[in-house]
């Protein structure tokens, strides 16, 4: 079968059957890309994942772009990326079109109110895991703590936007990188 069609098919399927995104996709991608298609090795997939986690953007999209590029250069990258988001666009558009009518139903409201609590718990778990990752596994604890405290201060007291906070952290990271390189 045509490789472009297979790329489309594989990533469309991944987009359709992934719930939550991010790391939840790893087993699904492993089965599809490594075991079934043989496009990537286990190591390559893990590499793509670790790079995707520290580059901007949605992780699922980044992995799709990497794999598409490996197989068929830029065209493959674009095709794989579009395929992985297409199910979301279709499903959400359908839901959003009827959403305002549906939310007036009390039963839907009950379900949504329940899910909101679930989302809240999920985000608390995400925060905890990320915090654990930063402060337990890092040798240097003072530097991340300083960044964390100043980010909190800038958000709660100065009401800076998220974009500005990330940009400031990025500047700091580049500065730190530059000085370390100068020293060595």
């Amino acid at each position: 079968m045509n490789i472009y069609f297979l790329l489309f098919y594989s990533f469309f399927k991944t987009g359709l059957f992934t719930f939550g995104g991010g790391l939840a996709m790893l087993p699904l991608l492993k089965e599809e890309l490594v075991q079934k298609r043989g496009w990537l090795s286990d190591d390559e997939l893990l590499n793509y994942f670790s790079v995707s986690e520290c580059t901007p953007g949605i992780i699922a999209v980044n992995v799709a772009t990497f794999t598409g590029y490996k197989l068929k250069k830029s065209l493959g990258a674009i095709l794989a990326t579009f395929s992985v988001v297409l199910p979301s666009v279709i499903i959400i558009t359908l839901i959003a079109s009827v959403f305002s009518n549906v939310t007036s139903l009390t039963s839907v409201q009950h379900i949504l109110n329940g899910i909101k609590i679930g989302v809240s718990a999920l985000l608390m778990k995400v925060s905890f895991d990320l915090g654990y990752h930063i402060f337990k596994k890092n040798h240097n604890k003072i530097f991340p703590a300083l960044i964390f405290m100043s980010a909190l201060f800038l958000i709660f007291i100065c009401h800076l936007s998220c974009a500005l906070i990330v940009l400031l952290a990025l500047l700091l990271a580049l500065g730190k990188f530059y000085f370390q390189r100068k020293k060595s």
């Binding site: 986690e53 520290c54 985000l123 995400v126 925060s127 990320l130 915090g131 990752h133 930063i134 890092n138 530097f143 991340p144 703590a145 960044i147 964390f148 980010a151 909190l152 958000i155 998220c162 906070i165 990330v166 400031l168 952290a169 990025l170 700091l172 990271a173 580049l174 730190k176 990188f177 370390q180």
Partner: peptide, 15 residues
């Protein structure tokens, strides 16, 4: 290295 500096700021945003 760059990511490690960004992470604590991202944590603050998510919190």
């Amino acid at each position: 290295e760059i990511f490690k500096t960004l992470q604590p700021a991202v944590l603050a945003l998510i919190i």
